[in-house]
């Protein structure tokens, strides 16, 4: 009883201070300062239609490199925490019985369509809403669909590893090329085309394609690691 009272007291104090600070920020006022500069320079200098993509990849590109690293560390950490040595004669089981025919046929039809949608989203990241992260997550959802419907669907872990490593290396190499050419890290060194064209924006499109591949491969490997963990009936240890 005392514990509940103290928890409510803490929540009331935190809530009061948050409301006190946030109510002093007027809602909907036009106080854009740095955003005005980005909204001005993005269609005129960089020739990129999607301003959010230009900020994420070009103006604040270093933060995106950090985010990709955090995702990679999370996937590696998860795989290493869940590691378990196989005992003798233990098989990898996923489900007790197979799915029905409707689910199997339906996922076979949907699988290439979802991959096509994900590829469209990350290739056109600088023209319409979307980008590398969104497209990568959509492709991971497609492979999750196949992993749930079929018990024999296998994901080759070494191929996934190679795709992920090569995509990450491409990202860092593009940044270092900016350094070699005498400018800053992750500087835009390819010619920018016209607005609303597919080949516009210099290296922004190439970076987002690399990020899309990397996120898709990483999340597929993560879900496959989690799904293959044995059920607790096979876990009778300690």
């Amino acid at each position: 009883m005392m514990k509940r009272f103290f928890i409510f007291l803490i929540l009331a104090i935190v809530g009061y201070y948050i409301v006190d600070v946030v109510s002093q920020i007027p809602f909907g006022e036009n106080r854009v300062n740095v955003g005005d500069y980005y909204l001005d320079k993005s269609p005129s200098e960089l020739k990129v239609s999607n301003t959010v993509t230009a900020i994420v990849v070009n103006y604040r590109g270093f933060d995106t490199l950090g985010e990709v690293t955090v995702l990679f560390l999370a996937a590696t950490g998860l795989a290493s925490i869940m590691f378990r040595r196989k005992r003798k004669g233990e098989k990898d089981i996923r489900a007790k019985k197979a799915s029905s025919r409707i689910i199997q046929i339906g996922s076979q039809i949907l699988f290439p369509i979802i991959i096509l949608l994900g590829a469209y989203v990350f290739i056109h990241g600088h023209l319409s809403p979307g980008g590398g992260f969104q497209g990568g997550v959509i492709i991971a959802t497609a492979s999750l669909l196949m992993l749930i419907s079929y018990r024999k669907f296998k994901v080759n872990h070494s191929t996934i590893s190679w795709i992920e490593s090569i995509a990450g290396i491409v990202f860092v190499l593009l940044g270092v090329t900016g350094l070699i050419l005498g400018k800053t890290f992750l500087e835009n060194f390819l010619p920018t085309g016209e607005l609303n064209n597919l080949l516009s924006g210099g290296i922004i499109g190439i970076i987002y394609v690399a990020v899309g591949f990397k996120v898709a491969a990483e999340l597929t490997g993560l879900i496959d690691t989690l799904l293959l963990n044995n059920r607790p009936e096979a876990n009778k240890e300690k």
């Binding site: 909907g28 854009v32 993005s42 269609p43 999607n50 301003t51 959010v52 809403p129």
Partner: peptide, 14 residues
């Protein structure tokens, strides 16, 4: 919600 501007639209130059 802090970054909303009254009667603004999405920041995409279509």
């Amino acid at each position: 919600a802090i970054g909303y501007v009254k009667d603004g639209t999405a920041p995409i130059f279509s």
